[in-house]
């Protein structure tokens, strides 16, 4: 299924804007965790609603993961989903000196907190570059240690299709991995295209 959601120029601009947002988010958690954060080139794709669960599974890889979800509202609107690889909470607990006190609720709290930092910094950075305001809902746990193919249920997705922007964070000496995905529904893309066009015109 081919969907011409955005032009090549808009895609290129979005990728660079996401790259800068990712850099700001990476620096934020590097400061919190005191570790070097590895970044990778943002990826942009279009998926129909039924394909979203499979798309998330494909980028998260096989195995078990947890996910935190946060809606964003404003001129740019959609959902941010932070997907954490299996032992990420454990790594975070060690780095933040929780010691052995990490029970399951505390592990979830950690993912919610770190997800919130990543989403706020990354999407906040993107919105700032695109000169628009963005607001966030409180983060909620979408999935707790489930197979990556079960992170999200297709029937809970309201949009017919969506634009998917993915950035990745890893820690050099640890298993911690977080894929941050922005899902923007089809009917929110006109505003995104306008914002990107404004940005492109500045240069």
């Amino acid at each position: 299924m081919t969907m011409e959601f955005i032009s090549d120029d808009q895609r290129d601009a979005l990728q660079e804007v996401a790259n800068i947002g990712m850099g700001q988010a990476g620096a934020s958690i590097a400061r919190v965790l005191g570790e070097f954060v590895e970044l990778s080139v943002p990826r942009i794709s279009t998926v129909d609603a039924a394909g979203i669960p499979a798309a998330l599974a494909a980028l998260a890889g096989d195995g078990v993961a947890s996910a935190v979800r946060q809606a964003f509202i404003g001129e740019l609107r959609g959902e941010a989903i932070a997907i954490f690889s299996e032992h990420s909470a454990h790594d975070l607990a060690e780095l933040l000196a929780y010691g052995d006190a990490l029970d399951a609720p505390a592990g979830c709290e950690l993912l919610l907190d770190i997800g919130n930092v990543l989403v706020g910094a990354c999407l906040g950075g993107i919105a700032g570059l695109l000169r628009t305001e963005i607001g966030f809902s409180a983060p909620s746990l979408l999935a707790d240690q489930v197979a990556t193919s079960d992170l999200i249920q297709a029937e809970t997705i309201a949009a017919r299709c969506a634009l998917l922007v993915e950035v990745r964070f890893g820690l050099e000496k640890r298993v911690f991995r977080c894929h941050l995905v922005m899902l923007m529904p089809e009917d929110a893309l006109a505003a995104l295209r306008r914002a990107l066009d404004r940005f492109i015109e500045e240069f």
Partner: peptide, 9 residues
Amino acid sequence: VSADIQEAA
């Protein structure tokens, strides 16, 4: 010239 603004980078 990078978006990776970590001090360590």
